[in-house]
Computed example of a mutant assay.
Amino acid sequence: MRKIIACLFLTMDGVIQSPGSRDEDPKNNFKWGGWSFPHWDDIMNQSMAKITAEPYDLLLGRRTYEIFAAFWPHQQNDPTSETFNKVEKYVVATTKVDTSWVNTSLITGNVVQELEKLKASDGPDLLIYGSAGLCQTLFEHHLIDVLHTWTFPVTLGSGQRLFEEGTQPEQWKLADAIVSSTGVIMANYSPDGDVKTGSMSGG
């Protein structure tokens, strides 16, 4: 069975919207697009290389897929572009999507059922970048097997957040964590069963 592996950039107050550039996702007049850019360093590049070292296919929401499709196929002599062009790309959408990017398949209809079938099929693990809307569905149905959260030392106060209504109670186990020279906390989690509670009062 394939694993679904999510790699998500978020601010300290949980905003996931438009980390890469100003015009990436400006919905609801979001004006802070590109907030992750000033913080990148070699430690982060090495950590990303480790995440992508094993074979993978891409699983993306519609908006993230369209951003990728408009950029990566047109990059020359770029290892990431070569990989993204080669791997299978699964895009989850409820509206029409241009799937002309080579090796792209559309997942629609009963999305949860189709994702469960995809997980059960043969093939490499499924890697998600961004795709906040898709992640809400995956969290709701406990479909994420590995969660990489990169928390940037930024607060924005507005914008789409990673954990929104529909996220189910779940405990997560920390596998490892590292901090970049710019203060980005890169943590790797896996699901760890039901939420455990207790009392600090000792009573």
Rank of each mutant, 00 (worst) to 15 (best):
V184H: 02
Q17F: 03
N45F: 12
C7D: 14
K119T: 09
F163V: 15
Q136K: 15
K96P: 06
L143M: 12
T52I: 09
S21A: 11
P19Q: 03
N103C: 05
F139M: 08
I16R: 00
Q136A: 14
Q171F: 06
S21K: 07
N45Y: 11
L147I: 11
G198A: 11
S201P: 06
R63D: 05
N28M: 13
P169K: 10
H39Q: 01
H148K: 04
I128H: 06
D98T: 06
L126I: 07
G166K: 02
P55G: 02
Q17Y: 04
L115N: 04
A132N: 10
V154A: 03
S121H: 02
H148I: 02
P26V: 09
A187I: 10
V184G: 04
W172L: 15
W40H: 13
E140N: 13
V146N: 01
D23A: 13
T151K: 01
V92Y: 04
T182S: 10
D192C: 07
P26R: 07
S121N: 03
Q17H: 05
G14K: 00
L143S: 05
G203W: 06
T95P: 10
I5D: 02
D41M: 12
K173G: 04
I67P: 01
Q46A: 15
M1P: 14
L147K: 02
G157Y: 08
S131Q: 00
T182E: 08
E54R: 14
T167Y: 09
S190P: 04
L134H: 06
T80P: 00
P55Y: 00
L174G: 02
F37D: 11
V154E: 09
F71P: 04
A49F: 01
W32A: 15
F9P: 00
L10V: 14
R161F: 00
T99S: 09
T83N: 11
M200I: 11
G61R: 08
E114G: 13
G123Q: 07
E116Y: 02
P19V: 02
I67A: 11
T95G: 12
N85L: 09
G109V: 02
